[in-house]
Design a binder for these strands. Structure first.
Length: 590
RNA sequence: CGGGGAGUAGCUCAGCUUGGUAGAGCGCGGCGUUUGGGACGCCGAGGUCGCAGGUUCGAAUCCUGUCUCCCCGACCA
């Protein structure tokens, strides 16, 4: 009964809620904001989450994983073992308890579970294992946004696998493939339009990583895909097919210095110098984070209308790096911050120069004239025009490495099929599977004896699903102007029965109750809108909360022994169905 | 963390420029008329105007500080 639950719908949503899922979940009474990025899941929303969780549990269990529950609260010393107390930085919710012990709320649980495992597992005979939990996670995001899409507290299913080997039965690759299949099953059963894409594997090494993306224009992630080969990857990871490059080409004029005060952004320089960004070289400085490396800095040169890709730069350089943010340190290293050119690297053994093929061009696009380039002048508040690679770099040109270091864009050549262009769409990341390797087991000393009596690091994988985000992604994907359209598998109720008169003895109410009982006995979740409201009011609410099937019980229909059955999302008024045939129409047995 | 915006009734907002009795719509309670796509009339309850200072005879309004929230960006499973 609607009146017995807390289903509070609203005609209005906060004016600043822009994402459809945020607006509709709020209006439909599924969630309510408590603080920035923190939400109460109201009865309707919680039902959806429970259904998603049920599907997740079924598929995880079927894939051989076992459920447990770890605490959200943990001692920070665990994170110190892996260095993640620092790595997470401000993203971590941390505090001292009354005894001054440093604690944190879990953003994820690699350390907690590895701590558990190292105390519990001592022999290869106990492996492989895959353990998971469904739990609230805490991340103090810089900017929570779009309701449930990026919250500070959110529900996540996280799983961790432990294997002795990479290959073979019980190996990491098998565990990973099992999870890949389980995730595919889960999101398919949830009724989502999604794709699995290759993702940035992070600084751990060449291990694989896939993200499961719900296709939705409001998504935060950009997905590139090749329509021929089926290759799909996050833009952070997406390779670009072969592009020709050639530094040779005549200068377009004498190198000319231009005074460009206050022009530290591409946009400002472009406007000030009246040069299109595609004729400018952008020089992005990265700082090497490996103390041992003789190379301290990397200058990545891309065309100014392109974006440098940190992961590709890192892979090309072969050392851990970060975007250089410390202006003083950069100045100390001789960089004219904001006005750098490739020439800044000449004669510097501590700087590695990487150039993207599109920037490594001496000839203009028409192939007759040289390519016009503008770039920094390596002195404050100045840029140069008529930069020519051969003339300006001289002998240093032979040390320049030309390599793909930028983000892919729509229209770029596919890395898999020659002559095919990449396409772009947006997605919401709802799942991420990841081959961790030994990063955590090594850091935390989790080793077991193998069959040869040797201590060996355990190989881990981790597998996450944003459960609350999945609910939001589902609304982003499936809604119309009137409200949410829940996929049947995760709808809060299967059927909404709307009697138009609700007095206890009204015939419509009697029929509605009987029908509800009958359908419930057949295993359906049924909600009866017993509120004493006008029909139009109840229909609007019905559309808003998006139950897949609405059965309207009114005097008109009952006169011929019928009720009206309408599926959400279907045009028109639905169809008249004899009361005794409702079960059959819904595909259940009497 | 950079840029922008907002805090006034349960919700969405007006009022602030030019200081002087606290407003509307929705929602809520009562009564009546209504009843197949967010009805209508009448009556009513509900706000120390985010918080703290300051200026002033007098502050929602002006000033200072502070907290919170939202949007864009950067960053991030």
């Amino acid at each position: 009964m609607w009146s017995k639950s807390l289903i509070m719908t609203s005609k209005e949503a906060p004016a600043d809620a822009e994402a459809a899922s945020h607006r509709l979940l709020t209006r439909a009474g599924c969630i309510r904001r408590v603080a920035a990025g923190v939400y109460t899941y109201l009865p309707l929303g919680w039902r959806v989450l429970r259904r998603i969780q049920a599907i997740v549990r079924e598929e995880m269990n079927a894939a051989g994983a076992s459920e447990l529950l770890m605490p959200a609260l943990a001692p920070t010393e665990l994170l110190r073992e892996t260095g993640r107390a620092e790595a997470y930085g401000d993203l971590l919710f941390r505090f001292e308890d009354r005894h001054g012990r440093d604690s944190y709320l879990g953003p994820t649980h690699e350390e907690v579970i590895t701590d558990l495992m190292r105390a519990t597992i001592t022999s290869y005979r106990q492996l492989p294992l895959n353990l998971y939990q469904i739990q609230s996670k805490y991340r103090d995001e810089y900017r929570p946004r779009a309701g449930l899409l990026r919250g500070r507290e959110f529900i996540m299913k996280d799983a961790y696998s432990f294997s002795m080997t990479l290959e073979g039965p019980g190996g990491l690759n098998e565990m990973y493939d099992l999870m890949y299949q389980a995730y595919t099953n889960i999101f398919t059963r949830c009724g989502l339009d999604f794709s699995a894409v290759e993702a940035e594997a992070g600084p751990i090494g060449g291990s694989a990583s896939h993200e499961f993306m719900v296709n939705a224009p409001a998504g935060e992630d950009k997905i590139m895909s090749c329509p021929e080969s089926g290759y799909a990857a996050n833009v952070e990871k997406c390779e670009i097919g072969h592009r020709d490059h050639n530094f040779d080409g005549p200068p377009t004029g004498d190198l000319e210095e231009v005074h460009t005060p206050e022009c530290t952004t591409i946009e400002a320089v472009s406007k000030f110098m009246k040069v299109k960004p595609r004729n400018m070289l952008k020089n992005v400085v990265f700082q090497v984070q490996d103390e041992e490396s003789p190379v301290r800095w990397i200058v990545a040169v891309v065309r100014a209308d392109h974006d440098a890709n940190e992961g590709k730069v890192r892979d090309a350089a072969g050392v851990p790096i970060g975007i250089a943010e410390d202006g003083a340190a950069m100045k100390g290293a001789g960089f004219a911050v904001g006005y750098i050119s490739p020439r800044a690297t000449i004669g510097r053994s501590d700087i590695l120069l990487l150039v993207d093929p599109d920037a490594a061009q001496g000839m203009g696009p028409d192939g007759t004239k040289g390519m016009f380039w503008a770039t920094g002048a390596d002195k404050d508040e100045h840029h140069v025009k008529h930069f020519n690679w051969v003339r300006e770099m001289g002998d240093a040109l032979k040390d320049v490495r030309v390599v793909d270091i930028r983000n892919a864009e729509a229209g770029d050549p596919s890395p898999r099929v020659e002559g095919v262009a990449l396409e772009e769409r947006r997605g919401i990341e709802v799942g991420h599977i990841f081959k961790l390797g030994c990063k955590y087991s090594d850091a935390m000393g989790f080793r077991v004896l193998d069959e040869n009596q040797q201590q060996q690091s355990v190989i881990m994988g981790c597998y996450g699903i944003g459960v609350s985000r999945t609910m939001a992604a589902c609304v982003e994907m499936s809604h119309d102007d009137d409200g949410i359209i829940w996929p049947a598998a995760i709808a809060p109720y299967d059927v909404l029965i709307t009697p138009l008169k609700v007095e206890d003895d009204a015939e419509t109410m009697v029929v509605a109750r009987d029908l509800a009982t009958k359908l419930a006995l057949a295993g359906l979740d049924v909600l009866v809108d017993d509120r004493n409201e006008r029909p139009g009011f109840k229909f609007k609410d019905a559309d808003l909360i998006g139950i897949p099937v609405r059965i309207t019980v009114g005097d008109k229909g009952l006169a011929e022994g019928s009720v009206e059955l309408k599926r959400r999302g279907e045009e028109g008024k639905g169809s008249l169905v004899k009361v005794e045939e409702v079960g059959a129409v819904l595909g259940i047995q009497d």
